[in-house]
Simulated assay, not measured.
Amino acid sequence: MSLLRRPSSAAKPGPEESAVSAALGTVLDPEIRRPITELGMVGSLEVSATGAVLVQVLLTTSGCPLRDTLERDVTAAVSRVAGVRAVRVDLGVMDDEQRSRLRGVLRGPGGTAGERDVPFARPGSLTRVYCVASGKGGVGKSTLTVNLAVAMARDGLRVGLVDADVHGFSVPGMLGTTDRPVKIEDVVIPPVAHGVKVISMGMVVPDGQPVMHRGPLLHRALQQFLTEVHFGDLDVLLLDMPPGTGDVPISAAQLLPGSELLVVTTPQPAAAEVAHRSGGLAARTGQGVVGVVENMSWMPLPDGSRLEVFGSGGGAAVAERLSRDSGAPVPLLAQVPMDVAVREGGDAGMPVVLAAPDSPAALVLSDLARTLGRRARGLAGRPLGVVPV
Results as ranks from 00 to 15, higher is better:
G327T: 01
P337V: 14
A334V: 13
P300F: 15
V342W: 13
F310I: 00
P302H: 04
D339K: 08
L322H: 12
M299T: 14
R321F: 02
L333W: 03
L301F: 01
L333S: 05
V342Y: 10
E320T: 08
G304A: 10
S297H: 11
S305H: 14
A319W: 00
V309W: 05
V340R: 07
S305D: 12
S312A: 15
D303A: 00
G313Q: 04
R324G: 01
G327Y: 03
V318A: 05
G314A: 02
V336S: 09
L322G: 12
G304T: 11
E308Q: 13
G314P: 07
G314T: 03
S323W: 10
S312I: 04
V336M: 11
S305T: 15
P300N: 15
R343W: 07
F310K: 13
P337I: 15
L301Y: 04
S305G: 13
P300G: 11
G313T: 03
G327W: 05
G304H: 10
R324H: 06
S323C: 11
E320C: 01
P329A: 08
P331W: 11
F310A: 03
L307W: 06
L333V: 09
R343F: 06
L301K: 12
G327D: 00
P302S: 14
L332A: 03
L322E: 07
G327C: 01
L332E: 06
D339Q: 07
L307H: 15
P302G: 02
G313H: 04
L333T: 04
P302T: 06
P300H: 05
V340S: 10
S305Y: 04
R306T: 07
S326V: 03
P302W: 05
R321I: 00
L332W: 04
V318N: 00
V336C: 06
D303W: 10
A317D: 05
A334L: 07
V330G: 02
L307Y: 11
W298P: 04
V309C: 09
W298M: 11
Q335L: 05
M299D: 00
L301N: 03
P331D: 04
G315Y: 08
R324Y: 02
A341V: 00
S323I: 13
A341H: 13
L307M: 10
S312M: 06
P337C: 12
W298E: 01
G313I: 06
M338D: 07
V340I: 09
P329Q: 10
A334I: 11
S326T: 11
P331Q: 12
R321V: 03
A316V: 09
R343N: 04
S297R: 02
